[in-house]
Design a binder for these strands. Structure first.
Lengths: 296, 296
DNA sequence: TTTAACCTGTCAATTTTTTTACATAAGATA
DNA sequence: TATCTTATGTAAAAAAATTGACAGGTTAAA
């Protein structure tokens, strides 16, 4: 069926074995056959177990692997794992390119790749029940809601603030400058909820604030990265979001994704109330003529 | 064909960890978090390597696994391998949903769907050569760069401002309130570049500002939605971004995606200069001790 | 402040795995 | 047949991994 190999070298370890089948002696063939039929899991056990599984001695396994180019059993297994890693993180469903007219290496394609990978990882890491519990907290309007972010993440706090203010009452954004935070802290009562953003590098002011918040009995919902901000020690709920870009930069897109998911979830939960607030807001805007009139 | 679930309790090991997150102490959380982030490959190395990878001791790994019900590290690894075996023999089911442990209708899965659809559409609509031309404009530091957004999108202007200020000089954010914009307009010279955000509902203030900007000879780069803001009439480059959420809400995630792609592209273009600025910034932060020291 | 409980790491004992050295057997060649 | 080569296993040494005992440190409670 497949008559032309695309690459002569550098393919899977399985192919390497298959292409050199005539190299092996009978006992070695027994091993290779076993490896190939239960590929790749068969190679992930100890050399002892592997040799038992296919009825040869451990030195035979060693010799076979050396013959085909691996320095030791250990290096063989390591390469096998890397290959498996590849397979797992590069599922077939993945789109070849996102921006079809741009080359694969174009920045738009690279960033799209990174972002979707981050999204996938983050969603695998975050428990949806925990997410729902957060929405429960936010939906309870007996307690005020406050938003706080760091140097980079304060933009997200703002974004969330704008939307949450439409959805429910009693939503407050911390002031821009940290020196004003103490004043704001005074307003916070026990069981108030604070949504906080802190990604690396973790900021001293935020850590201090979180300690004070905890002391006042506020509940912190923390957006952080996979390495967990120290604020996590004081938070009620922690969302560890994968923010890593390949070449050093950190991406905020997935963070915004979760913020937005919260907005959607909360809006659905409080819809009857929200729709009323939205209508009022529309009326307000009409009066101030801040927005362009609809064309139709 | 197969209508009965094979195991009713067939939780993956990942789910087991996620469901018992409150059980763990800080060091144990570090481990669990690492395991989940690089799941499942992270668990396929020796206990020694695993402990080194996430910065805890081997006994901590043991205790964590025992606490959650595994008799030993060895049994944990064996079960993990069996699970992986399963996954490998059933590869398609994997990316049906984004958050694998949540039902398809869960808000996280719906928003993830919407966002990726929007991303795909937007990337098909936007010419990558135009994107590159925008980067050319931004890379030219003879002219100042200004940022301006609306009620909701000002958060993006802010985010972009924070990052662009690290990358190049002469980057300025418009003030918060529209009444102060005239003052800021005075500072803008011919051929200065203005990045502007305007999505529906289009704001009167922004339209006015864009007319004035054009009159002063400034070049506008416009982030807008698929229905195009009236500002597009005055802009040099327009990025029509698909922002539509299924049930009425508008998503900002893809907008941020393009903003971030700009940051990455520009950073790469100006890297020698940027890296210098970043180092200086780091030194500055060290002096002010604003950030938590690296734990090392 | 003291005490107790708990967290977490170091270190060492024990077990397992990996690797090497060597021996035996089978078959080929002279 | 004698000898050499190749194939393969046994067993022991070396390396590494797993596990348990213990102790310093930290936090919470009295």
């Amino acid at each position: 069926m497949n008559n032309t190999p695309i690459h002569t070298d550098s393919h899977t370890i399985a192919e390497l074995f298959r292409s050199e089948l005539n190299l092996f002696s009978p006992a070695e063939l027994k091993l290779v056959n076993y490896l190939l039929t239960n590929y790749p899991m068969s190679g992930l056990v100890s050399i002892t177990e592997l040799s038992e599984n296919c009825g040869v001695s451990t030195p035979t396994v060693m010799r076979t692997l050396k013959r085909i180019g691996f320095a030791s059993f250990t290096t063989f297994q390591k390469e096998l794992k890397e290959e498996l890693q590849q397979t797992l993180s590069d599922p077939i469903a993945k789109h070849d390119r996102w921006a079809a007219d741009a080359p694969k290496e174009h920045v738009l394609n690279r960033v799209a790749d990174t972002v979707t990978t981050n999204l996938r990882h983050s969603l695998n890491q975050i428990n949806h029940e925990q997410f729902d519990a957060i929405i429960d907290l936010l939906a309870n309007q007996e307690h005020a809601l406050h938003l706080l972010g760091g140097r980079i993440t304060s933009a997200f706090a703002r974004y969330l603030n704008t939307h949450l203010n439409v959805i429910r009452e009693d939503v407050h954004l911390f002031p821009e400058t940290a020196s004003l935070w103490p004043h704001h802290l005074l307003k916070i009562k026990e069981n108030d909820v604070v949504i906080m953003f802190d990604v690396r590098r973790y900021e001293q002011d935020l850590i201090t604030a979180s300690r004070l918040l905890k002391a006042r009995g506020a509940k912190i919902i923390l957006f952080t990265d996979q390495w967990l901000s120290p604020v996590a020690d004081y938070s009620e709920h922690t969302l560890p979001i994968r923010i890593e870009g390949k070449s050093g930069w950190d991406s905020g897109v997935v963070t915004l994704f979760f913020a937005e998911s919260m907005i959607v979830a909360l809006e659905e939960r409080l819809w009857s109330q929200t729709s009323k607030r939205m209508r009022e807001l529309e009326d307000m805007f009409d009066l101030t003529e801040r927005f362009k009139k609809k064309i139709k």
